[in-house]
Design a binder for these strands. Structure first.
Length: 320
DNA sequence: TAGTGTTTATGTGTTG
DNA sequence: CAACACATAAACACTA
């Protein structure tokens, strides 16, 4: 396991599992589903490390897609000719990653065999999923709820719902995320020794390139996979429906939200505090798993670095 | 035939 | 230390 060291990460293996990377790719797509080739592309575009030994990691990735229940295969429609199916995230897999951290899952996502909720036939499941998604979306629209932006994997029990884990998918893939005020961190101090700091990531996706050496950040990538994470659309779609059915093998005409807004999460005001905590060694309000993981894998990053950054900016931004 | 998808096996590192 | 998560390899089937 490569650890974030002092050198550039450009060619080093990112600390994300294939599951994470795949989830990122899928989540980054407007429709929340991608063919295998696009998943490859996404990963190679963003992580130079994966531009080599493609046979190797792509085999592993395919293995993960098949092996893990959190990925569901969606058949191509007749009007979408091509090879292979689309892959999407299982509607119930949202809490796979503790605190939204994509470093390591707290537990493997497994579809229950006796899922009484979900229809058994794919055709039914398709309808069911679509129905659920529509209901969900219309409900959201009706309430006019401004959902916590990109809170897809933000499951933090004691975190404000606006908190976005530095390794959360939103932060990872939100390269095009633009702050309302057009703020940018591109001029930020280079931080070769550390993985993206929460404030950097949460604040502006475009800054990832500088603060996140293992991710490629040249403009060319954007042409490949337009990311709509910053759009309001994502806010809606990105909030998964947890209680949604399991085992939905289907063909959703509309993207199925991945995970519900954690209802249990107390509606606390945005706190700058939790973030630095993650990368530091004190886990107070965060789950040990998450913080431990984050720290263990980015050890050389000195917590002080994270603390010296303009942390407060980050949440006010994240919320909006 | 290359790409895709499934499955089995094995090894390593982490977690409880 | 057992169980788990993950990475990797490899064999094989299917299909555009």
């Amino acid at each position: 396991m490569p650890r974030p060291g002092r050198n550039t990460y450009s060619d080093q293996k990112p600390p994300y599992s294939y599951i994470s990377l795949t989830a990122m790719a899928i989540q980054s797509s407007p429709e929340k589903m991608l063919p295998l080739s696009e998943i490859y592309k996404f990963i190679m575009d963003r992580f130079p490390y994966y531009r080599e030994n493609t046979q190797r990691w792509q085999n592993s990735l395919r293995h993960n897609l098949s092996f893990n229940d959190c990925f569901i295969k969606i058949p191509r429609r007749p009007d979408q000719p091509g090879k292979g199916s689309f892959w999407a995230l299982h509607p119930s897999c949202g809490d796979m990653f503790e605190n939204g951290s994509f470093l390591r899952r707290r537990k493997r996502f497994k579809v229950l065999k006796s899922e009484h909720l979900a229809p058994s036939k794919p055709a039914d499941a398709a309808q069911y999923l679509q129905q659920q998604a529509k209901l969900r979306l219309s409900a959201l629209a009706a309430t006019g709820t401004h959902l916590p932006q990109m809170s897809t994997y933000n499951l933090g029990v004691s975190q404000p719902s606006s908190f976005k884990h530095p390794f959360a998918i939103e932060n990872i893939i939100a390269r095009e995320y633009k702050m309302p005020g057009g703020l940018a961190f591109s001029t930020m101090q280079p931080m070769p020794a550390a993985y993206p700091l929460p404030n950097q990531l949460t604040t502006v996706g475009s800054s990832i390139g500088t603060g996140w050496p293992h991710m490629y950040s040249s403009g060319m990538i954007d042409t490949a996979t337009p990311i709509s994470m910053a759009s309001s659309e994502y806010s809606a779609y990105g909030v998964p429906i947890k209680p949604l059915c399991h085992g939905g093998q289907t063909l959703p005409a509309i993207p199925v939200p991945i995970k519900p807004t954690p209802a249990a999460v107390p509606a606390l005001p945005a706190l700058p505090a939790p973030i630095p905590t993650i990368l530091s060694n004190s886990p107070p309000s965060l789950s040990p798993t998450s913080s431990q993981t984050a720290t263990s894998q980015s050890s050389p990053a000195t917590p002080s670095e994270t603390l010296t950054s303009p942390a407060p900016a980050l949440h006010s931004v994240a919320v909006h």
